[in-house]
Amino acid sequence: MPKEQLRYDRMVETALRGVVRDALTEVAERGLPGNHHFYLTFRTGYPGVEIPEYLASQYPNEMTIVLQFQYYGLDVTDDHFEVTLSFNNVHERLVIPFAAITTFADPSVNFALQFQPLAAAESAEVSSMPPRAAAERVEEKVEEAAPAEEPKRGEVVALDAFRKK
């Protein structure tokens, strides 16, 4: 019988998703400080993602949103966040589980995280973590991105892209 091992990779992923949750929680409570803004890429077909059908068909795999100037009703829970964005002058409510996020970046401070997609069963680890636990273990207004500005689906964002030269 093989010995079970501690899954440090999952622990780190869970802690880093907690960083995203904590950042969004602070923004929901206080607004975006200074020049901070977020690029969030998520898997549109992930269980629990709620986006309008026309967006799901336009972005069948991944979608990137930018939280910067215009966003409404940012609500953050232990396992997901909700936000209203404007698409072609129509306000749409998005529900995005943290486990669906594949990339989080704040270019204003050259910070980016890239995640391995979680299986639905593994997402329970993310939702069972206390909201502020990641901040203790890890140091370290929303505007729709115009379709022409969004990264291509499947594009990998390297941390070097956000570092000053």
Rank of each mutant, 00 (worst) to 15 (best):
A28G: 04
V109Y: 12
V156K: 13
I101S: 01
L24C: 08
G18I: 01
Y39K: 09
T84S: 10
A56R: 09
S128E: 15
D79C: 06
R163Q: 12
M11C: 11
Y54D: 14
S57E: 14
E143Q: 14
E139Q: 13
H91Q: 12
V138K: 10
A145Q: 11
Y71I: 06
A135T: 12
G73R: 14
N61H: 12
G34L: 11
A100L: 00
G31D: 05
V95A: 05
A99Q: 08
G31T: 01
G34M: 07
I65P: 05
F81G: 07
E143A: 15
Q5R: 13
G34E: 11
G18D: 06
F38K: 04
R137C: 10
L55G: 00
F162I: 06
H37K: 08
V27M: 07
G48N: 05
T41F: 04
V109D: 01
Y39T: 03
Y59N: 07
L24W: 06
L113D: 03
Y8F: 15
D78W: 02
L32F: 00
A121S: 15
Y72P: 01
A100D: 04
A158L: 13
D22H: 12
R137V: 11
E139C: 10
F42C: 04
M11Y: 10
F104A: 00
L159G: 14
A99V: 02
P60L: 12
D106R: 01
A135S: 14
R163L: 11
M63F: 15
D78A: 15
L55A: 11
D106P: 03
L74V: 02
T77I: 06
S128R: 15
K3D: 14
V142H: 07
D160G: 13
L85K: 01
A133I: 06
M1R: 13
L118Q: 06
E92L: 07
H36M: 14
F38N: 03
A146R: 11
T64H: 05
H91E: 12
Q70N: 13
T44I: 00
E149Q: 15
F104G: 05
V49I: 03
H80T: 05
A119I: 09
F69A: 13
L67M: 14
V126M: 03
A145P: 06
F87K: 05
S128M: 14
A100H: 05
V66P: 07
V49P: 04
F98V: 06
A105R: 04
N88H: 14
D78E: 13
Y59H: 09
Q114P: 02
I65A: 00
